[in-house]
Amino acid sequence: WPTCLACDRMPHQQMKVRAVIFDLDETLIEEETSNDASVLAAGEIAHARRGVDRVALLAALRKRSRELFLAGPLIDYCRNIGISTREALWGTFAGDDPSLAQLRQWMPTYRLESWWGALNELGVDDRALAAELVEIFESDRSRRHVVFAESERILHHLRKNFRLGLITNGAPDIQGTKIDGAKLASFFDTIIISGDHGFGKPDLRIFQLALRRLEVAAHEAVMIGDSLNRDIAGARDAGIRTIWINRYQRTLSESHAVPDIELTDLRDLPTILIPTD
């Protein structure tokens, strides 16, 4: 069973590695809370105009956007690349890939129907307001990039002794905007975005690509991420050791991949990771 580091800073094992590979969303930056904050910001307009409760609107939008997304024309592509419902509400989906072009065509309808459906659920039938909320949310979310408090300090420390890589699932424009907005690009020797390659975590190929670019063997690297299915299981299958960042104290089930180490945040990484001689 993994070593669990809770708030009391328990002792832990150490790993000798040459390269450290990070996930992005919910590992280095706050994704879900940023999305919620942007919805609530748009909800201020809905409250001012029609008395809509912002929190209720957030819940309704989650429900309606998910329903539409799962029934959408490119759900298999989105699952493969790692494009989420919340990202589909604001990304531009720039790029030459035919699937991205199809997403660009569908997005205006998807976003309007998501917001209009959410308003309808709260008793407000106002397509003009829905269209306004689409624009407000897109603008706010594209500028909101919150980095976890310890991320930059830890990356700066590790950069001195290790080769650093980043593997993130998603559309190139969305993930690129997050990385640039969070000012994290300069820390990494290589950055791999699934949408640039047509496959994403947990696909073995994306981890092998990272190893090649970092010029290390699998046993010389460690993968750090929050997703047991994508980050931990995928890296484990590639022969890479793993550290699970469990910020929200989720519980491991028997069906989950078991990480080598479990942490509640990134703060202990400098004492866990030891450069190889």
Score class of each variant (00 low, 15 high):
Thr109Glu: 14
Ile192Ala: 08
Ile193Gln: 05
Gln175Leu: 07
Arg212Val: 11
Asp231Pro: 12
Glu152Trp: 06
Trp116Leu: 15
Trp244Arg: 05
Pro73Glu: 15
Glu30Trp: 00
Arg49Leu: 13
Arg250Ile: 06
His12Ser: 13
Leu74Cys: 10
Gln13Lys: 10
His197Tyr: 15
Glu31Asn: 11
Arg62His: 15
Ile21Ser: 08
Glu262Asn: 09
Gly170Lys: 05
Ala233Pro: 04
Asn169Gly: 04
Arg212Cys: 11
Ser65Met: 10
Pro270Asn: 13
Ile45Ser: 05
Thr264Arg: 14
Ala37Tyr: 05
His197Asn: 08
Ala46Arg: 03
Arg267Gln: 12
Ile174Phe: 03
Ala128Pro: 00
Gly195Leu: 06
Leu74Val: 09
Glu26His: 08
Phe22Ala: 02
Thr242Val: 11
Leu112Phe: 05
Gly95Trp: 10
Ile243Gln: 01
Thr33Val: 08
Ile174Asn: 03
Met223Lys: 01
Gln208Arg: 15
Thr109Trp: 12
Gly43Arg: 05
Leu24Pro: 12
Ala149Arg: 11
Arg143His: 14
Ser255Met: 03
Arg141Cys: 01
Asp8Ser: 13
Gln208Leu: 14
Ile245Arg: 02
Leu209Asp: 08
Val39Trp: 00
Leu70Gly: 01
Ser99Pro: 01
Leu158Thr: 08
Ser65His: 15
Glu215Tyr: 04
Arg236Met: 09
Ala46Gly: 14
Pro172Thr: 10
His256Met: 10
Ser227Arg: 12
Asn80Gln: 15
Gly239Asp: 02
Leu28Thr: 08
Gly195Phe: 01
Thr92Tyr: 08
Ser34Leu: 08
Phe162Thr: 07
Ile81Glu: 03
Gly225Trp: 01
Val258Gly: 05
Gln13Asn: 13
Ala6Trp: 00
Arg212Ile: 12
Lys160His: 15
Ile240Thr: 10
His197Val: 01
Gly239Thr: 11
Val17Met: 07
Val216Ile: 13
Val17Leu: 02
Leu252Phe: 06
Asp97Cys: 11
Ser84Asp: 02
Val134Leu: 07
Ile224His: 05
Asp196Tyr: 04
Tyr110Pro: 07
Leu122Met: 11
Ala130Gln: 03
Thr85Asn: 12
Gly200Thr: 10
Glu26Arg: 01
Trp1Gln: 09
Glu67Trp: 10
Lys63Tyr: 09
Ile193Lys: 03
Asn80Gly: 05
His47Leu: 13
Leu228Gly: 01
Pro172Phe: 00
Leu155Lys: 06
Asp76Cys: 07
Trp244Gly: 10
Asp23Trp: 07
Asn229Val: 13
Ala131Ser: 14
Gln105Asp: 13
Asp25Trp: 00
Asp203Gly: 02
Gly198Asp: 11
Arg104Trp: 12
Leu158Asn: 02
Ala6Lys: 09
Ala130His: 00
Leu103Ser: 02
Asp277Cys: 06
Thr109Ser: 12
Ala233Gln: 13
Ile174Met: 02
Phe199Ser: 03
Cys4Asp: 09
Arg267Ala: 14
Leu28Asn: 08
Gln175Glu: 13
Ala182Ser: 14
Glu26Cys: 11
Arg205His: 11
Gln13Met: 06
Pro270Met: 12
Thr251Asn: 11
Val216His: 00
Val222Cys: 02
Pro108Asn: 03
Ile75His: 10
Met223Thr: 00
Gln208Trp: 07
Asp231Glu: 04
Leu74Arg: 11
Leu209Val: 04
Ile192Ser: 00
Ala235Ser: 10
Asp23Gln: 02
Asp231Gly: 06
Leu263Cys: 14
Gln14Tyr: 04
Ser255Lys: 07
Gly200Met: 00
Glu44Tyr: 06
Ile274His: 07
